[in-house]
Design a protein around this nucleic acid. Structure first.
Lengths: 105, 105
DNA sequence: GACTGGTGCAACCATGGAGTTGCACATCGC
DNA sequence: GCGATGTGCAACTCCATGGTTGCACCAGTC
């Protein structure tokens, strides 16, 4: 995963309402209308959030009759986590190197 | 890490400029002024970004003489990655369970 | 002591995005 | 066919925030 995909994904995750939606979908797939009953926002607001979550691949639509349920894609989350961990590790490595140089090793 | 700390962290990571700053600091610690020379934004803009990064603990100030350098905290990133991975795994598990039930197992 | 480079603070602007309401449309059940 | 339910689209409001400029201030240096 490059930063071009990483940053929008973080932006999608960095909203409390969107996180609530993801958590709800993580428990059980649901439609926008169903989510609107549980959460303190309108259905349209949720629809917008689902659109951005869909955009970054964190969620997947599952048509059931005339309604559209969404499921949270944990795999994508794990994937993102891996990328993050790699970056973090790289920073620590570089910092350790710099420290070594500074200490004249 | 709870979602109360997770969401602001993602919000902090979900900005292209902020990510650039983090990447730059990941290579080598630097001051706001130094970063402003490399990046296409003003020093004050960078200072603001550093403030939000500091807020969520992704960065650490290191006073050097009269300047304030910042270093990227990879450990915090790794920590966040772990939390993300756990959540992702949980979603996958639940979804598998639901699928099993639906298939009458 | 004067100059210079690095910070910090404040005011200000503009855009984006989260949220709303309203309406039109499709589809399922009676 | 008709009502009810679920979606989608559009316009609009409002606030957070990313960005700027300007100024004041402090600490080294010559």
């Amino acid at each position: 995963m490059t930063s071009d995909t990483l940053v929008p994904t973080f932006a999608a995750l960095g909203d409390a309402t969107r996180w609530s939606i993801l958590v709800a979908l993580g428990e059980r797939p649901a439609s926008a209308s169903a989510l609107a009953e549980r959460l303190p926002v309108s259905r349209q607001a949720i629809a917008k959030h689902l659109a951005v979550l869909l955009e970054v691949g964190l969620v997947e639509p599952v048509p059931v009759g005339r309604e559209v349920r969404y499921r949270a894609l944990g795999a994508r989350l794990t994937q993102t986590a891996d990328a993050l961990a790699k970056v973090g590790a790289a920073w620590e490595r570089r910092l350790a190197t710099i420290k070594d140089i500074a200490e004249g090793l």
